[in-house]
Amino acid sequence: MLIPHPLLGPRDAQEFTYLGDARLIDRPDPSAPDAEAAFCDYVFLRDNPAGVHRELWFHEQGDRSWLVVTRDTVTHEVLGAELARNVALSRTRCGK
């Protein structure tokens, strides 16, 4: 597979390690009253879609960027990739 790194262009997937669902960026509020339930959901429950999936890849043998890669799990078509840091920052700004 090739991952279209937003800064470095297409890079072979062998340079990356895979983590999983990009929802892991959305860490729950630890001080919320239902924090334990929210964390339980965050840690253990994942969607496993046959189709478009946003997922986290780490460019370990590269620039050490975490990427959010949008990939169709059925065709393996990669629809886009962004720096996870930018995704996280834009959510913070939106007051997620």
Partner: peptide, 12 residues
């Protein structure tokens, strides 16, 4: 790797 995850994705 986890520290970079925390730095870039959780507390950017």
């Amino acid at each position: 790797r986890n520290m970079e995850f925390a730095r870039q994705c959780l507390w950017s």
